[in-house]
Computed example of a mutant assay.
Amino acid sequence: MKTLYCFDLDGTITTTEVLPCIASEMGIADEMATLTRITMEGLISFEDSLRLRCLLIGQVPIDRVHSIIAAIPLDPAIANFIRRHPEECFVVTGNLDVWIGPLVSQLGCRTFSSKAQFGEERLKLVHVLNKGRVIADLRGAEAAVRIVAIGDGANDVPMLAAADIGIAFGGVHSPTPAATSAAHYVVHDGNTLCNLLKAL
Rank of each mutant, 00 (worst) to 15 (best):
181 S>K: 15
48 D>H: 12
119 G>C: 12
167 I>L: 04
56 L>A: 15
30 D>R: 15
128 V>I: 15
120 E>G: 12
12 T>A: 06
75 D>A: 12
189 D>N: 15
6 C>T: 10
176 T>V: 08
186 V>Q: 06
119 G>E: 14
119 G>M: 12
104 V>W: 05
86 P>C: 11
200 L>A: 04
106 Q>I: 06
102 P>F: 00
174 S>P: 07
68 I>Y: 00
199 A>G: 12
105 S>N: 15
17 E>S: 05
52 L>D: 10
35 L>W: 09
77 A>I: 02
34 T>Y: 13
9 L>D: 01
177 P>K: 10
3 T>N: 10
9 L>Y: 00
159 M>V: 07
69 I>Q: 01
72 I>D: 08
147 I>N: 01
16 T>F: 03
27 G>Q: 11
120 E>V: 11
166 G>P: 02
184 H>M: 09
150 I>L: 10
114 S>K: 04
21 C>F: 00
191 N>P: 02
102 P>W: 00
88 E>G: 02
109 C>S: 08
40 M>F: 10
171 G>Q: 00
60 V>H: 05
130 N>S: 14
44 I>H: 02
77 A>D: 14
77 A>H: 14
44 I>D: 03
52 L>N: 12
18 V>N: 02
83 R>P: 01
109 C>I: 09
53 R>K: 14
199 A>N: 14
30 D>H: 13
131 K>W: 03
90 F>L: 07
79 A>P: 07
99 W>P: 00
94 G>H: 03
104 V>C: 07
63 D>A: 12
106 Q>M: 15
